[in-house]
Amino acid sequence: MPNVILYAGLGSELTCYRVDAHAGGLRRQGSVTLPAEVQYAVPDRSAGHLFVASSNRNNEDSPNGAVHHLTTFRIAADTGLLTQVGAPGPLPDRPIHLTADGAAAHLLVAFSDPAGLRVYKVNADGTPGEPVPQADPIETGIYPHQVRVTPDQKQVILVSRGHDPKNGKPEEPGCLKVFDYRNGRLSNEASIAPNGGFGFGPRHLDFHPTGPWIYVALERQNRLQVFSRQNGRVSDQALFTRETLADPARRGRRQLVGTVRVHPSGRFVYVANRGDATVEEGGQKVFAGGENNFAVYRIDAGTGEPALIQHIDTGGIHCRNFQLDSTGRLLAASHIQPVRMRRDGEVVVVPPCISLFRVGEDGKLTLLKTHEVAITGRRIFWMGLVEV
């Protein structure tokens, strides 16, 4: 297996670990500090650089934050340790997601609130440059959560989640915004919004490596949907819809779908279920119950249809990020923050953690090890794997 490096954003500190993929071990290598809390990061295709988005504004936690940046780091080929390249580039608001195009000539950044999508040129030294002017205004939809470039580099898809009804406000619909893409420029915008986007709350998507299928995780509906993409056109309706929860009848608590990943072989797809609702007990908030597991599906090679083969606990509460290595034999998952939980009649603190799983030939997961992470007052908001 290649040398796998795991990076975890512990607040504003980005920490580098070497992974023992056989035993599930993590060995801390070192860390760097960002201008604010790490929001998301992505390497270039050669794993020579890591581009990191940071912000001190995080929705209701810190609504008035005004520090938002893109920072480039050089990745050491032997250790994975990071060295900052140049100065951080300012962003207009909190970035929720970013990605690089195939040549890492541009970075595409999604903003949730206010909603936005910007494309930034990458300078010759790897630092973020100026935003690329767009010929037409971009209609982002409501609350973008992810931006991806299609594998053929010809299109960009912005995933906009919308909002459930709340406090007397009606539902705000979700959608997939599809753009043609060339040299940093977006054009010919189209909107995919089944039922007008009502009852459609997409958070993340992933592409099948060889087939014409897009796997979309619906955060607000706890479902996985499959769309087709052929000749540059994404289907208006889902080909298949699957429940992600093991017990969908118990949906009364706050229950969310998270990240979705297609196995590198194209034979399996993985979705994270997240439950983090709390109730007041004795003056403290205690976990109210819910599903924190992976739903694992086998993919039909002819149709792209997913068939559920496993539910397995993620190893912690609220798995915000998970990723597979390039061989498809290792899965790493991070859990965002500590949660109080009633266990054997006592209230205990379940710490934030990183769990490592072995992926079998049949696609099923086996937990190797869970690593508690001491991050008092901080969160593991992003985690990812890079191979050196």
Rank of each mutant, 00 (worst) to 15 (best):
R182H: 11
G201E: 08
R161D: 03
H163E: 06
Y181H: 14
G162L: 00
S191N: 15
L176A: 13
G168H: 05
L176T: 14
N183D: 14
N183V: 09
P194S: 10
R182S: 14
I192L: 01
L186Y: 07
P165S: 09
P165Q: 06
K166N: 12
R161W: 07
N167A: 13
N188S: 13
P194A: 06
L176E: 11
L205W: 00
N195K: 12
E189I: 05
G184R: 03
L186H: 06
C175G: 15
A193V: 05
N188D: 13
K166P: 04
R182A: 15
G197H: 01
D164M: 14
V178W: 12
H204R: 06
R182W: 04
H163T: 02
G168I: 01
S187Y: 01
F198A: 06
E172G: 11
G174H: 06
N195I: 04
N167W: 15
Y181A: 13
C175K: 15
Y181G: 10
P165N: 08
E189C: 10
G174I: 08
H163I: 01
P173W: 00
P170W: 03
R182D: 10
G199P: 02
N188Y: 05
A193M: 10
V178I: 15
N183G: 11
H163P: 02
L205Y: 00
D180Q: 06
G196C: 08
N183Y: 07
I192N: 03
Y181I: 14
C175R: 15
E171Y: 02
G174V: 11
R185L: 07
G184W: 03
H163K: 04
G196H: 10
G168F: 02
R161P: 02
F200H: 01
N195E: 13
L176W: 12
C175I: 08
D164P: 03
P194Y: 06
E189P: 10
K169T: 07
Y181L: 15
S187C: 04
G201H: 15
N183S: 11
P202G: 06
R182Q: 09
R182I: 08
